[in-house]
Computed example of a mutant assay.
Amino acid sequence: MKAAILKEFATPLSVENMPDPVLGTGEVIVDIFAAPVLPYANEVFNGERKMLLELPIVPGTGAIGRIRAVGPDATRLKVGDWVLCDATIRSRDNATNPDITLHGLTARGDGGLHLQRYFHHGSFAEQMLIPTENAIPIGEIKTSDASKWCAITTFLVPYGGLLAANLQAGETILVSGATGHFGSACVAVALAMGARYVIAPGRNEMVLDEMVRRFGDRVIPVTLSGDPQEDQLRMQQAAPCPIDCVLDILPPSAAPSTVKAAIMTVRPYGKIVLMGGIGMHGGSGLELPYPWIMRNCITIYGQWLYPTNAPARLITLIQSGLLKLDNFTITRFPIDEVNEAVTHAAASGGAFRMTVLNSVID
């Protein structure tokens, strides 16, 4: 099969032929039709993000494809089924605290690395081996719609945070990082889940205006000034009602003071979800006042990725029409142009934009 291989950090990916994956029990092989390219993939491949990634490797996180082969223990999946390839691979021998590898991207600790060594190669290839439980059926779709369905891999990240907070219909949420790639997806998912209002702070007024145009007056845009105290006041004053939940999904480059300003807008007895990258590159961490947390009964959730049932639940939101896949403008590249795709993704990874790698451009 043809695949894109990262042999060394800070070097271009090499497109080569390599052996097809070999099927084992508890596994499926998927023909990859479309694989998303993360906006920060270049930062991973040049070593800047310092991901736990053993080389050489076929990168690529998540995909849409069709089942090529199933193991003997598969009772529902069959050859030809369209599936989401869930990139969050969990160890099966500790249900309480499973080790995790994010397929083709990174791992959590030594156990995650051990898992990565087996499920090593990601989705920048014509075929991929994944655990049976990571092949999530999406129903019959057109081949031409495979790229569009890659949007689910973006939606899933903030959806995990919204599930952690147990966001309820009628609640108001503030999305810190709302104008970014994952933050804008969070706005869309929160609205699909029935949020009363989504407070959307950001500095890019064009993106904020576009959100209101797309989603209507349930989105409350807030233009940030860059002054934390001023911005906290702006966000609180813009909210038509108390803010029940704040979800932060800002990247590592964001200032901790920006995150703190957003968090401090939540109401007493409110919820905070931390999903961003503050501190990942070193420097100051997030400092929150202990008395404020305690006396206001604030609940704080740290959430990396999403629970095992999230992909199937999110698919039902899409199939019901509550969450639209066509929010994204998609740019597609053939696998032979993978390095051009990585460059493009870095340059155009903002709100509602997606770069997709296709094994075949139809």
Rank of each mutant, 00 (worst) to 15 (best):
280 M>S: 13
128 M>P: 00
358 N>P: 00
347 A>T: 02
147 S>H: 08
201 P>W: 03
222 V>G: 01
129 L>P: 05
221 P>D: 05
348 S>N: 15
140 E>A: 13
29 I>W: 01
335 I>A: 02
74 A>Y: 01
251 P>D: 13
23 L>T: 11
189 V>M: 02
136 I>R: 05
134 N>F: 01
289 P>Q: 14
178 A>L: 10
337 E>M: 03
244 D>I: 09
244 D>G: 02
144 S>W: 00
114 H>M: 11
63 A>F: 02
103 H>Q: 14
228 P>N: 11
334 P>C: 10
222 V>R: 00
263 I>N: 11
93 D>V: 09
357 L>Q: 02
31 D>R: 12
283 G>Y: 05
83 V>H: 06
220 I>Q: 01
287 E>R: 14
329 T>G: 06
35 A>T: 07
73 D>Q: 04
235 M>L: 00
307 P>M: 12
36 P>T: 12
342 V>H: 00
55 L>F: 06
325 L>D: 01
162 L>T: 03
175 V>A: 04
278 I>C: 13
10 A>V: 04
247 L>H: 08
19 P>T: 10
306 Y>M: 10
14 S>Q: 09
10 A>N: 09
88 T>R: 08
38 L>W: 08
285 G>E: 09
362 D>P: 14
135 A>W: 07
314 L>I: 01
185 A>G: 06
193 M>A: 03
177 G>T: 05
74 A>V: 10
227 D>M: 10
229 Q>S: 11
264 M>E: 15
205 E>I: 11
267 R>G: 06
216 G>P: 02
239 A>I: 06
303 Q>I: 05
76 R>M: 11
117 R>E: 07
83 V>T: 07
163 L>Q: 14
175 V>N: 02
97 N>K: 13
109 G>M: 07
307 P>N: 10
196 R>L: 12
307 P>K: 12
70 V>I: 12
53 L>N: 00
170 G>L: 15
220 I>W: 00
164 A>N: 10
312 A>D: 03
344 H>K: 05
123 S>F: 12
309 N>S: 14
133 E>A: 15
189 V>S: 01
13 L>W: 12
166 N>P: 01
194 G>N: 03
128 M>V: 15
125 A>R: 03
312 A>R: 08
41 A>R: 01
113 L>Y: 00
42 N>S: 14
40 Y>D: 14
76 R>T: 15
63 A>D: 02
324 K>H: 14
6 L>C: 11
337 E>C: 04
317 L>C: 09
51 M>L: 01
315 I>A: 06
262 A>V: 06
55 L>G: 10
305 L>Q: 11
184 S>D: 05
101 T>D: 09
161 G>N: 05
100 I>T: 09
143 T>Q: 05
283 G>P: 04
214 R>G: 00
238 A>L: 03
36 P>C: 07
107 A>Y: 00
